[in-house]
C-alpha cells in the first residue's frame, strides 16, 4: 500500500519536516528535544508488535519478544525522562519551589 514513489514522497516530506522543526529551536531545549525525538522513534514498538504478531515458530517468537521488549523500553523510557525534564521549565513570573 505504501510503495515506490509514494514512499519516496513520504521520506522526502518527513525529512524536510524534521529539518524545519529543529532549525528554529533554542539551545535551551536541545536536550529535551533530543529526548523527545528519542521518544518519537519509540513508535518502533508498533512495528515490533507486528513482528511478534506474525511470528510463526519459536525462534521468531523469541526475537519478536525481544523486539517488543526493547521497543516498549524506548517508548516508555523516552516519555518519562522527557516529561520529567520539561516539567521543570517555567517562566520567572510563577512562584518557585513546587519541585518535589
Amino acid at each position: 500500500m505504501i510503495e515506490g514513489l509514494a514512499a519516496l514522497y513520504i521520506f522526502m516530506l518527513a525529512g524536510f519536516t524534521g529539518f524545519e522543526i529543529i532549525s528554529r529551536v533554542p539551545v535551551i531545549l536541545h536536550t529535551p528535544l533530543m529526548s523527545g525525538s528519542n521518544f518519537v522513534h519509540g513508535i518502533v514498538l508498533v512495528g515490533a508488535m507486528v513482528a511478534l504478531g506474525i511470528a510463526e515458530d519459536t525462534t521468531q517468537q523469541i526475537i519478536g519478544f525481544i523486539a517488543v521488549l526493547l521497543g516498549a523500553g524506548n517508548a516508555v523510557g523516552g516519555y518519562v525522562v522527557t516529561e520529567r525534564m520539561l516539567e521543570m521549565f517555567k517562566p520567572s513570573k510563577k512562584k518557585e519551589g513546587s519541585e518535589g
Binding site: I2, A7, I10, F11, A14, G15, F16, T17, G18, F19, I21, I22, S23, H30, L33, M34, S37, N38, V40, H41, I43, V44, V46, G47
Partner: peptide, 17 residues
C-alpha cells in the same frame, strides 16, 4: 506509515542537531 514518518522526521531532525 506512522513508523516511516516518525522515523524519518527524527532521522533528519537528529542529523541537523
Amino acid at each position: 506509515a506512522a513508523m516511516i514518518i516518525a522515523g524519518i522526521v527524527v532521522g533528519s531532525a537528529g542529523s541537523l542537531l
